[in-house]
């Protein structure tokens, strides 16, 4: 396949970026999207040019590191996958593919396609945990009976890999789906109820401080989430937040 690429190039956080055109020939449908970028980078290095920086780690859809806006959609045209799981067979010979970093004020570009997602870490640090004494007297989590339905919902929420596709897809760059998944995974379990009030208040406050937008329930985040995190989590977080605010 012959593929035409338009890729965002930005020297560093302070520089202004621009789209740069590249042409790739001999691309196989069985190549992963990131392999295609690897080949492009090898060509650039051979020519003595600066390779394109992009984030990746596990390359099997688990780590949430890859963060590419491909043809206007986070992680590309297919659903329920990350960019590393996207294959070139999803494109046709002669296609033009636009590749940009995820865009949000709270996710500043570091270089080319790499963004700083530590805003998510700070939201998590604000309350996305339970306080457990791990000094050797830790109680087995399985000793507390939990309804199957709640355990399942908690598990589904915990499947969030924090890739940021929800923010990238949202027209408001809202982080509600991410934050709500992290609130929900604990709110649904008895171990998480103990600190539930402070957790939701602190995590939402941090989310607002980071400068993410407001949710307008378009549902774009749910469609683009590679792990299928549901909007039900946002409704749950809203309930948790309102009840915590009234208590506080």
């Amino acid at each position: 396949m012959k593929i035409y690429l338009k890729i965002w190039r930005q020297k560093d956080a302070a520089s202004k970026g621009k789209m740069v055109d590249y042409t790739m020939e001999g691309i196989e449908g069985d190549m992963s999207f990131l392999e295609m970028l690897d080949i492009l980078n090898e060509e650039l290095i051979t020519k003595g040019e600066e390779p394109i920086e992009f984030d990746h780690d596990c390359r099997e859809g688990i780590c949430g590191t890859c963060s590419l806006q491909i043809n206007g959609r986070p992680h590309g045209p297919d659903t329920m996958i990350t960019a590393c799981q996207l294959h070139m067979r999803s494109f046709n010979d002669g296609d033009t593919i636009t590749i940009e970093p995820f865009r949000a004020k709270a996710f500043p570009v570091i270089k080319d396609l790499i963004i700083d997602r530590t805003a998510f870490d700070r939201i998590q640090q604000a309350g996305g945990f339970i306080s457990v004494n791990t000094s050797g007297h830790t109680i087995d989590a399985n000793s507390i009976p939990i309804e199957k339905e709640k355990a399942d919902d908690s598990f589904y929420a915990a499947a969030c890999i924090g890739c940021g596709a929800c923010v990238a897809a949202c027209k408001n760059a809202s982080a509600m789906l991410f934050t709500s998944a992290k609130v929900s995974q604990f709110a649904l379990l008895p171990q998480g109820r103990v600190e539930a009030t402070d957790r939701v208040l602190n995590m939402v406050r941090q989310m607002d401080i980071e400068g993410f937008g407001n949710c307008t329930n378009t549902g774009a985040c749910e469609v683009e989430c590679p792990k299928g995190i549901s909007l039900e989590n946002i409704a749950r977080m809203n309930r948790e937040y309102l009840s915590a605010s009234l208590k506080g």
Binding site: R103, P108, G213
Partner: peptide, 11 residues
């Protein structure tokens, strides 16, 4: 919400 995007997408 407009401010939260920062730099706009090309696509």
């Amino acid at each position: 919400n407009n401010r939260a995007r920062g730099v706009k997408y090309v696509q």
